[in-house]
Structures are given as structure tokens and as C-alpha cells.
Simulated assay, not measured.
Amino acid sequence: MPLVLLITFTYYPVGNMIWYSFTDWDGIDQTKNFVGLNNYIQLFTRPQYFQVFTVSLYYFAASFVQMAIALYFATLLSFRTRFKNFFKGIIFFPYLINGVAIGLIFLFFFRPGGTLDATLVALGLGKMGHFPLWLGNPGWVNISLAGASVWRYTGLNFVLFLGAIQSIPSEAYEAADIDGANSWQKFRYLIVPGIRRIISLSMILAIAGSLSVFELPYIITGGANGSGTFVTTTVQQAFVFQRVGFASAMAVMLTIVVLLITWIQRKLVPDDDVALS
């Protein structure tokens, strides 16, 4: 039964997507004319479709901020800390919120005179009306959206790191205490090597996530002001311009890019090296 579900809801749709990428299907008509590699030729000969990958760099940089914050709090809350369960819930809670709700929250947060502007005024960092348009300025919009992604996804990395740190045997910490190791030495020589597999997994998720960002820019800006990503462009081609065949080719290429980068990363940081660290 699990195999049937996997084939029905994963492999069959992927197979259909690959087939559509070789057609000119508009998503409505019953006929799907075979066009060979024409969709892929258009994709590679029009650089504007790949220029949106530069937007992913903002989210990729934000993923390092996520991991740093998550690792810090996971390390802190892995040991005896007052109200640690309360703080665990606070950190993980944003990840549980629906993406549409988060988009609406940050739409009000970043709007002119919104929560962010009011907070900066309260801190004495400026006057109302003198702040940039966080979502309307092309120089700020991707930074703002990447910041929102940090708030949302830090909880996922936090849980991964927390579970990995707590799996390290307590005897290892006791031995470090006997040797006189301080907190930084425990973190550097005990915790980081012990969770390197999870750090590698987080890197893979960060790369895949930064390349396939969709919810936040689609809901908050609709891809306006230079905030469009490869996925929002793909959706636009499929459902606005009714070029499902071309959009399928874009989706296939995105899948190949993610798999290729993941394969390269696994070659650079193989499991054997991680296990021996």
C-alpha cells in the first residue's frame, strides 16, 4: 500500500510533468502537441528566466542566519535552563503557522507606518515617514522577505539541532568537564563534530529551499519590485500565461539543479568523512 501511494502521488505526477515539458499544453485544451526540446531551448536562450536565481542568494544568505540562531539556542536549551520548554515552544511555533497567515502578518509588519516602522520609532531609530518602503523599494524588498524567512524557518533548524545535541552521550560531557573544558571548547570539539551530519542536512535543505522559495514572495509582493523567484515565475507561466508545457520544463530544470547541487555537496561532505570526524 505505501508503494502504491508513493507511485500515485509522487512518481506518476513527476512523470506527467516531464511529459508535459515536451509539449505545448496550455493546461486546458485536451490536445498536447509534442514540441520536442523547444521548451528547453526557449528556457536556455532567454536569460531573464535564470536571472531570478539571483534572488535566491538573499534566501541562501538568510539560511546561514537561521542556522546560526538555531544552533545557538539549541546549544543553550540543551542544558539546564530556566523555562527552557517555554523558550523551545516560542522558537518552534513560527514554523507551525500556515504560510498564508505568515504572509499576511509580514504584509502588515512591513507596510508604511506598520509594526516595523512603529518599533523603530519607539527605539528612537528614526521618525515615522522617513523609513524606506520595505516592500516597495527594490533594494530592500528581498532583504525584508529573506528576514521574514529567517523568522519562519529557524524553528525547523532548531528542532533538528536540538535533537542531535541531546543524542550526544552525557558521558562525553562528563569527560570534558573532568578535562577542564570550557563551554566554547565543548561546543567546538564535542557538539559541532557530534552534529555534523545534521549540519550537512540543514545545508542541503537550505540550498533546496533558497532555490524553490515561493510562499512569502508570492503572498506578500506577488513577485513585484524584483522579488520574483524561479518558482513564482514558473507559476506565472503556467497559470497566468497558460504555458503549462513551458512551466513544466522550468520545473524539471529546477529539480535537476537541486539534485545536482545536492549530489555535489554529498561528494564534498560524504557520510564516511562525517562519521570519522
Score class of each variant (00 low, 15 high):
residue 54 T to S: 15
residue 137 N to S: 13
residue 233 T to Y: 06
residue 87 F to S: 01
residue 8 T to H: 01
residue 203 M to H: 09
residue 111 R to F: 00
residue 110 F to A: 04
residue 186 K to S: 06
residue 99 G to F: 10
residue 205 L to W: 09
residue 176 A to G: 10
residue 152 R to M: 05
residue 18 I to C: 12
residue 109 F to N: 06
residue 150 V to W: 07
residue 54 T to K: 14
residue 163 G to D: 03
residue 93 F to W: 04
residue 22 F to G: 10
residue 231 V to G: 07
residue 255 T to M: 13
residue 264 I to L: 15
residue 228 G to R: 12
residue 5 L to Y: 12
residue 113 G to S: 05
residue 86 F to M: 04
residue 62 A to K: 09
residue 151 W to R: 08
residue 274 V to C: 00
residue 80 R to F: 01
residue 152 R to T: 08
residue 150 V to C: 11
residue 111 R to D: 02
residue 57 L to A: 15
residue 37 L to R: 03
residue 37 L to V: 13
residue 47 P to N: 09
residue 132 P to G: 09
residue 209 G to N: 13
residue 247 A to N: 07
residue 78 S to F: 05
residue 41 I to E: 10
residue 87 F to Q: 00
residue 149 S to A: 13
residue 47 P to Q: 10
residue 251 A to D: 06
residue 19 W to L: 14
residue 60 F to T: 08
residue 128 M to S: 14
residue 21 S to G: 09
residue 155 G to M: 01
residue 216 L to Q: 13
residue 237 Q to K: 10
residue 18 I to T: 13
residue 24 D to H: 06
residue 36 G to A: 05
residue 52 V to Y: 07
residue 148 A to D: 02
residue 243 R to N: 13
residue 257 V to H: 07
residue 178 I to V: 15
residue 275 A to F: 03
residue 38 N to Q: 14
